[in-house]
Amino acid sequence: MGGSPLPLRNAPPLIALVDYDMGNLRSVQKGLERVGHAAVVTSDPEVVRHADKIVLPGVGAFSDAIASLRERGLVDPLCDAIAAGTPLLGICLGMQLLFERSHEDGVHEGLGVLPGEVVRFAGLPHECKVPHMGWNQLSIKRPSPVLEGIHDGDYFYFVHSYYVRPGDAGLVAAETDYHVPFCSCVHRDNVFAAQFHPEKSQACGLRLLRNFAEL
């Protein structure tokens, strides 16, 4: 008989892992797979726009990253999806891109999803090298669904020379101390982001990825 096919029931949510040539995509994809969730690596604006969840990773320079997002036509789909309530997880540079501007090698406009700016570590004692690289602890400031089951003092893996300075203190879900405290995790509505690399942070990082995938 004719007619339209029935929609698939219980289809798994589409997690779009945004490919703009600036991130360790396979590590994040493998991390999600380890907790039982597949992610599609994509640079297709329409896949991003209509995904059920989005992960925005990133490694490298802010100016190159925002330029690549623009060149691939991904800025509007990302912002539209966020405005529509799609959960998004930013990782490392992907977290920084969500803010209004960065002071890395000049001043560069970000996605402007969250208020605040990205600044370089400065005035640190000699023993605090830049980039901040290695394991460090979280100090949880308020509950967040992605931090469920993660405790004050748990360790995560960091590699970065710049960090976010939110324009709204209420965004801060966790801080980390590197001679001075800095914002290492944010949450507002459907937007979550971490300065550390959950895909490199063993059990705690996998827990965060699972929490996000199962929102």
Score class of each variant (00 low, 15 high):
residue 210 R to D: 15
residue 58 G to Y: 07
residue 101 R to M: 14
residue 211 N to Q: 09
residue 182 F to G: 00
residue 208 L to K: 10
residue 197 H to P: 05
residue 99 F to C: 10
residue 178 Y to L: 02
residue 46 E to Q: 09
residue 92 C to R: 04
residue 21 D to V: 06
residue 59 V to M: 04
residue 212 F to P: 13
residue 211 N to R: 10
residue 214 E to Q: 07
residue 76 D to P: 03
residue 77 P to C: 06
residue 45 P to M: 02
residue 213 A to V: 01
residue 168 D to N: 15
residue 111 L to F: 02
residue 121 F to G: 06
residue 46 E to D: 08
residue 100 E to C: 02
residue 133 M to E: 05
residue 95 M to S: 08
residue 193 A to C: 08
residue 99 F to P: 11
residue 23 G to L: 07
residue 87 P to F: 00
residue 134 G to W: 08
residue 68 S to N: 14
residue 122 A to P: 03
residue 8 L to P: 06
residue 29 Q to D: 03
residue 20 Y to R: 01
residue 95 M to L: 15
residue 49 R to C: 01
residue 52 D to S: 11
residue 9 R to D: 11
residue 4 S to Y: 13
residue 143 P to F: 07
residue 83 A to V: 01
residue 98 L to D: 07
residue 3 G to I: 02
residue 128 C to P: 04
residue 39 A to N: 08
residue 90 G to C: 05
residue 79 C to E: 13
residue 179 H to M: 12
residue 185 C to G: 07
residue 52 D to T: 05
residue 31 G to T: 03
residue 156 F to K: 09
residue 202 Q to F: 11
residue 183 C to F: 02
residue 161 S to W: 12
residue 169 A to D: 15
residue 175 E to P: 09
residue 177 D to H: 14
residue 122 A to L: 09
residue 21 D to K: 10
residue 44 D to M: 07
residue 190 N to A: 03
residue 81 A to L: 09
